Every structure is written in structure tokens, then in C-alpha cells.
Computed example of a mutant assay.
Amino acid sequence: MISESAAVYRGPACFDAVSGKLVEKAGVQFRFTSGSLAVLLGLPDIGHISYHGEMVIQGCQITQAIAILVIRNGDNVYKNAMNVRSTVKGCIQSGFAGIIPED
């Protein structure tokens, strides 16, 4: 038997408020933002989206549109310690429940 703390939960990713609402309607307990919000511009994930511009604004739109927890994919947290701090502050400001830095 798996204990509650070791249980596996589904947390689908989405990239905007509409896809967030669809995930919420599916009955999951939380969701992730996808790693690339460049899909909003119809571009590949190669740095077209700025953190302090599109990422924070999009995060606010997503977290305000749904009631379930949202965990942000932190990607590479923007390369250095000062940017890590700024990323975490922006995630708090945007209303994210957590962040997963990758690098």
C-alpha cells in the first residue's frame, strides 16, 4: 500500500488561462505551467519570451483564472543567483504555489 505522502498525482501542464480552466475542469488537484510560453507567439522555445514581461503577466492571468494550485516550470531560472531571486519573487507576485527550477 502506498502512503498518502508517496502517492502519485496528475498535474497536467498548460500555457494560458483557457487551457488552465480545461485542466481544472478535468478534476485534477494542481497543474503546471508548461516550460515554454512561446506557444503564445507561435514560436519555438528559444528565448523569445522575456521573464519580466510575458512570463509574469501570463502567470498572473493563469493563477487568477483558476482555483487549483499552479506550479511554475522554472526552466533554467535565468542563469544566475540574482535572477533566481527575481524569478522566485515574480512567482510569488504571480500567485504560483511553487516553482521547479531545472538548472
Rank of each mutant, 00 (worst) to 15 (best):
F30R: 01
M82F: 15
G95C: 02
L69R: 13
G74T: 04
I71Q: 03
V18S: 06
A17C: 10
R31I: 14
A6I: 03
F30A: 05
A65T: 06
I46S: 06
G74M: 04
F32E: 05
C91E: 01
H48D: 06
I68D: 03
L69I: 13
Q61M: 10
A13N: 05
V18L: 14
M82R: 15
S19N: 04
T63H: 03
S50D: 08
I46N: 07
E4M: 10
N73L: 05
V56M: 07
K21Y: 09
S94H: 00
K25C: 12
S3K: 12
R85M: 11
A6S: 08
Q93W: 12
A67M: 12
L41R: 10
I46W: 05
L43V: 13
P44N: 04
Q29R: 13
K25H: 14
A6V: 08
K89L: 14
V39Y: 04
R72L: 11
N80Y: 12
A65D: 10
Q58K: 09
D75N: 13
F15T: 02
R72N: 13
K79T: 14
L22S: 11
T33G: 04
I99G: 02
V28C: 05
K79A: 10
L22Q: 08
Y78C: 13
D103V: 05
R85D: 06
R72Q: 14
R72V: 15
A7Y: 09
R31N: 09
P101Y: 00
G35E: 08
I100H: 02
A17Y: 12
H52S: 14
N76H: 15
Y9V: 11
E54P: 01
Y51M: 13
R31G: 12
R31W: 09
Y51S: 10
F96N: 00
D75R: 11
I71T: 00
F96S: 00
G98L: 03
G47S: 05
F96T: 01
E4L: 12
V23H: 01
N80H: 11
D16S: 07
Y78V: 14
N83H: 12
R10S: 13
E4H: 08
M1L: 10
S34F: 13
S3H: 11
A17P: 09
F30K: 02
